[in-house]
Computed example of a mutant assay.
Amino acid sequence: MKRRVASHGQHFLRSPRVAAILLGHSTIRRRDTVYDLGAGSGVITSALARRCQQVVAVENEPRALDALRRHTAAVPHVRIIAADIRQLVLPTEPYKVFANIPFALSADIVRMLTTAPTPPQAIYLIVQRQFASKLVPSDRHFTAALGAQLTPWWQARIRYRLRRTDFTPPPAVDTVLLELLPRTEPWLPHNQQTAYSQFVAQHYAEPRRFAALPRAQLGINPERKPSELQPKQWVQLYQAMQMK
């Protein structure tokens, strides 16, 4: 099931064995419906089909679609959607996502999934380690605006570190399996997600506006840059400004 790298920097798993190992680090179960975004020729799709009751494979590249259809023709519980991932209409019934996505689309796909009207019950994405680190709050890692925007509603962690030789062609960067799970007790109401995300984005982008935030009054070191704040500090600042 090998094929050349597609556009947007996508690299494909070499073998079903690697896909099976990754699935072992997920919450995917027999009763689940799982979306494989950017399915390629079907390495992950086939592994999912052996594990869960319904698989939806999304692919847009014609040659990959042909290979995907051949490899899954005898599997009745695999449904193929020929579409650009970014144009996909997500379901309203419960589902999970497990996918090896194009690296260049990582941020777009994470935003699409986490802000969907019916978000996934769990998200597993193979991404660059540097990108994943921006979403996992830590004193040692840079937290990007996207990480700060997601964390009130989602818990992010790195579940598995892959080898470059697990892919064809091998990527020039380190890759990991990123897990995103919805919080059972969100830090903010869901109806504030858009307003909070805009608040974080604006204060990342505009130094003067960020400097005017009441950081010292909330016990936050005023010398810290936006990327150095922890997610709960962003929530504190947002709530303080909402009260004004």
Rank of each mutant, 00 (worst) to 15 (best):
L146D: 05
A19M: 06
Q242G: 12
G9L: 02
Q54M: 13
H203V: 02
L125R: 10
R63P: 04
A73R: 13
A116K: 03
K232F: 06
A99Q: 03
P222H: 04
I123Y: 11
A64W: 00
H203G: 03
N60A: 08
H141N: 09
F142A: 09
W234F: 03
T115P: 08
M112V: 09
P120N: 07
D139S: 05
D84H: 13
D66T: 14
Q53C: 13
R17C: 03
V75C: 12
R129E: 04
L180M: 13
Q121S: 14
Q217D: 11
K134L: 12
Y95W: 04
F98W: 06
L218C: 10
R157V: 12
T194Y: 08
G147Q: 04
T143Q: 06
V127I: 14
V18Y: 13
W154P: 00
R29D: 14
H190I: 10
P186G: 01
R69T: 13
I28H: 02
S15F: 00
V43I: 15
R208T: 15
R164F: 05
R69F: 15
E228Q: 15
T115L: 06
L88A: 04
G147A: 02
L213D: 01
P207F: 09
F98M: 09
R63E: 13
T151C: 09
V176M: 01
A132T: 01
P171Q: 06
K2Q: 14
P226W: 12
L65Q: 02
P91Y: 08
Q54H: 15
V5F: 15
H203Y: 01
S133G: 10
P102V: 04
L146H: 12
V127K: 04
N60E: 08
Q230P: 02
V34C: 05
F12D: 04
A104M: 11
R69K: 15
Y35Q: 03
W154S: 00
L90V: 10
V97I: 11
R29Q: 15
T175N: 07
L177P: 07
I158L: 03
A156V: 10
P186H: 02
P94V: 07
P120G: 06
A211V: 11
I101H: 05
I126C: 14
T184K: 12
Q233I: 04
